[in-house]
Every structure is written in structure tokens, then in C-alpha cells.
Simulated scan of single mutants.
Amino acid sequence: MIRAYRADGKAEIIPASGQSEGIDPAIIWLDLVNPDRAEEATAERLLGIPLPTREDLKDIEPSSRLYVEDNVIFMTASLVHQVETDLPELADVAFILSGNRMITIRYAEPRAFQLFSGALARIPGRYKTGAEMMARLLETIADRTAEVLEIAVARLDALSAEVFVDRKAAKRRRPGFLEDKLLDIAAHHRLLTKARDSLMSLSRLITFLRSQPAVRKDREADELCRIVAHDIQSLSEHAGFVSNNITFLLDASLGLINVEQNAIIKIFSIASVVFLPPTLVASIYGMNFQFMPELTWTYGYGLALVTMLLSAIIPFLFFRWKGWL
């Protein structure tokens, strides 16, 4: 699909069998969403420039993601999407600045694009140049990434409240509760990792964009890019802070699991120590020696039972007094 946006905020769909030559000068943004080969050919014919393919967008080399060719600026960034799902992903999006027009090529639906296109309709005629529009789009993407980090922080706070509860609530937990929370921590870590990777690619893109003469000449666009670069840096630092919180939560959860396991082992250890003296007494009187005076005692059996009982109770009371139980 080829969506064309005019400076006045109006949008239209350009069919793959559309105009044979040229494009309306009023169109300031051309957005290619999941384009097929026919739509790519139509866009190339209208713009007069070669467009990167889906395979080109996956290239991680800087020279393939950020370059200038015939005064046309080609940039690729990775944007996080599917944030609301359990499997957030990165989508490679191409940003092209050709003259006074911005072109984007994407094979996903990051929410930032929906927010930005909606703002175009509400404020028609706001953007005069393609560079300014691109800077505003990057600003919207940075804002959306900030929202993603806020979502991650909110989820971590909720998870932390579930993990760190009082002792009474902890005793009522079902077996394997903390082990399940480890999977939740891994999911939050995946979301944060995707957001940090996105911020890194945006930082490279905005630095490259600010170095271009076409952007430096546009004061409004240059100032917007400077603000976006500062926002991205701040978000990267905040993402690092959130990453430390995830690490702490992971370590704390593993520590609580170890504490629970040690408590179980302690119970078995104390039980074995408590029953060791009675076992010793029973073993002594279970010997088959011929001469054992106790065998002729009238109350020997009862005394043996009382001795075994006392040998079990005394260690138990001692452990209680020490606070080991």
C-alpha cells in the first residue's frame, strides 16, 4: 500500500497502476506499507530514485543503513512494535529524504506512525519541509519509545509487588509461584532489550541526519533533531536504569527461591537430627548379644520407649529455644 500525505494533512492511496510519471508536488510524505514488487516499482517510477528492498533493510552494516546517494538521504532504523503482546519485535523502517519529500518504507505497523498520521489530519499545513516532517516523525517515535519504557516500568512495579510480599502472604503461595515469575521477568527483559536496540538505532540515525547539509540549512528541522537527539540520550539512560531494576528483581527472585529451598532442606535436616537419638537407643537394644542385663528388667521395654521419646523431645525443644524452627 502506498499512502500519500499532503502538506494540508489530506491523505490518499496511490494504486500500483497509478500515475506513469511524476508525483504531485503537494505530496510531502509517501508512506509505503508492506509494499509488493508492483508498488515498489510504481513508487520508484514516481520518485525517480531506487528504493531499498525488504532484504536491504535487514542489513546491519552502517554503510547499508545510513548513506547518501545522488543527494538523496537513505536511513534505516529499528522500531519496537507489538508491545502489548508477549513477543515484542523490532521492525526495520527506511527513512528517505529526497528533496522536500519524506519517504518511509515499512513492513510493520509501529504505533508511532498511527499517532503521527493522526496528528497530520488534526493540524493541517503544520510542516513546510520534508526535513521538518521527518524530525517530527522521529520525535513521535521517541515519545512512543518513552511510553514503551513507562509500560515496562509499570509491569515491573506490579511484578515486584507480587514477588516482595509479607511473610504471611508468601506462605500462601502455590508451589512454583516464583519459578513462573522468572518467565515474566524474562518477558519484561525482552521488551526492554528491544526498546534499547531501537534507541541505539535511532541515535545513530539522528546523528547521521544532523550531519547532512540539507538538514543543517533548515533551522527548524535542525533544532528539532537536536531536541530528539537529547530525548533519545535521556531515554537510553533511563532504559539502563530500568535494566538494572530487572537485574535486581531477577537476582532477588532467585534468592527467594534459594531461601525456600533451604527452608525445606533445613526441615529435613532438623527432622533427621531429632530422630537420630531415638534411633541410636533402638539400635543399642536391638543388639543380639547374649549377656545384656537390661533384657531381664521388668520395666526395660517401657524405659526404652521413654528414653527414645525424651531423646527426641529434648533436641526439638532445644531447636525451638534457639529459634531454628
Rank of each mutant, 00 (worst) to 15 (best):
L149G: 01
V153K: 15
L137F: 05
K128P: 00
K128L: 10
P124V: 12
V153M: 15
S201K: 00
K181R: 14
L191I: 07
A169D: 14
R173H: 06
R196K: 13
D166S: 07
T140E: 09
D184R: 10
H188M: 14
V165S: 08
L191F: 01
G125L: 06
E147T: 03
K181N: 08
E147F: 04
S117L: 11
S198I: 02
R173D: 06
V165D: 07
R144Y: 12
A119L: 12
A170T: 07
I185D: 00
G125K: 07
E139T: 14
H189N: 13
M200S: 15
E150G: 14
L149F: 09
L138A: 02
F116I: 03
R172D: 11
L182W: 00
R174I: 06
A161P: 03
E179V: 15
A131T: 01
S160K: 10
E132A: 11
V153P: 04
S201T: 11
L182R: 01
A119E: 13
H188C: 06
A170C: 06
R174T: 10
K194V: 03
G125M: 09
D143R: 08
I151H: 10
L202D: 00
V148S: 06
M134W: 03
K181P: 05
M200H: 15
A152T: 12
K181A: 03
E139L: 13
D143C: 12
A119N: 12
L182F: 00
S160A: 13
Y127A: 04
I141Y: 00
A186F: 11
L156M: 10
A195R: 00
R172F: 07
V165W: 07
V153Q: 14
K194G: 04
V148N: 09
A187R: 14
P124W: 14
I123C: 13
L182C: 01
A187V: 11
H189R: 14
D166M: 05
L191T: 04
D143A: 08
T145Q: 05
A170W: 04
K181L: 09
R174E: 11
M134P: 01
I151G: 05
E147V: 03
R172P: 04
R122G: 10
K128Q: 10
E147Y: 01
V163G: 03
S198A: 11
R144E: 09
L183R: 13
P124I: 12
A146E: 11
D197T: 04
S117C: 13
M200P: 03
R174N: 07
L159V: 08
D184Q: 11
A152C: 14
R196L: 08
V153R: 14
R172W: 05
I185K: 01
R172A: 12
A195F: 02
K171D: 13
D166W: 05
R173E: 05
S203F: 06
R173C: 07
A186V: 05
G118N: 08
S160V: 07
S117P: 04
L137M: 10
D197Q: 09
R136S: 13
T140S: 10
R196Q: 12
A154H: 12
A195T: 10
K194S: 09
A187K: 12
E139M: 14
L149T: 08
I151W: 10
L159I: 09
A142G: 02
L178T: 02
R155E: 09
V163D: 06
L192Q: 03
